[in-house]
Design a protein around this nucleic acid. Sequence first.
DNA 1: GCCACCGGTGGC
DNA 2: GCCACCGGTGGC
Length: 272
Amino acid sequence: MMERKKADCPALPPGWKKEEVIRKSGLSAGKSDVYYYSPTGKKFRSKPQLARYLGNAVDLACFDFRTGKMMPGKLQKNKQRLRHETLSLAKGGKPDLNTALPIRQTASIFKQPVTKVTSHPGNKVKADLQRAVEQPRQLFWEKRLKGLRSSDVTEQVLRTMELPKGLQGVGPDPSDDTLLSAIASALHMSSAPITGQTSVAADKNPALWLNMSQPLCKTFTVTDEQIREQEMKVLQARRNGPQTDRAPLFRSLRVITIVILMQTINQKNTTC
DNA sequence: GCCACCGGTGGC
DNA sequence: GCCACCGGTGGC
């Protein structure tokens, strides 16, 4: 049998493959079918089927099944599901917890007040200071951030960032993706210093020894040397390639993000 | 029984 | 009219 090419699909978690098969005969000859294969080899032939399988692990809202790319802003052909959700919500139904995203959709460097909307007038805006820290959290909740990617104005998904060597993950998912998300989230969620997991035991059995107020990474301190190192990368990235090429620009933006991240950690840790 | 493959159709 | 989705089946 003729081997068809199964290409890696960067928009999905590692190990997922995409395949496009051209129809050879019949009324629809020339058209094509797109299939995806999980790391274990299971075949998927539609987006709903894919979403059912992945659950909350990957947000497929802007995933284009045919091209295999994330297309932010398109708001996709999800119209069916979206309409269904808003309808059921309007009728007083409960949100579908199975498809609701686990994290807030907006991102900001600043703590944001949350408005509670009720049918009564005279609503006040409450800032959520203590509550957010005190509410129960799932162990290894950072895993849910896996698969989230940033994308540029051409709607192409960016590759992962290169983190400094000093930063190392703890727990079931050691990828840099998750590590970066975890640290960035920690910066948002608490005003305490970010030190990582200080207990050595946390590495051996994270489920038992995890310090829930710290991100899932090993103990670290950000040195000025590391920041300078990253800043050098920015300069390098800018030197490589002409202005017409977007890649160096976005590469340097990514490095700048990490520089800012590290500086923020430093500032926060020294002022506390 | 499985599955690669094309047909049929609901929703746009 | 198009096409995403999934049903159905012929060939193994």
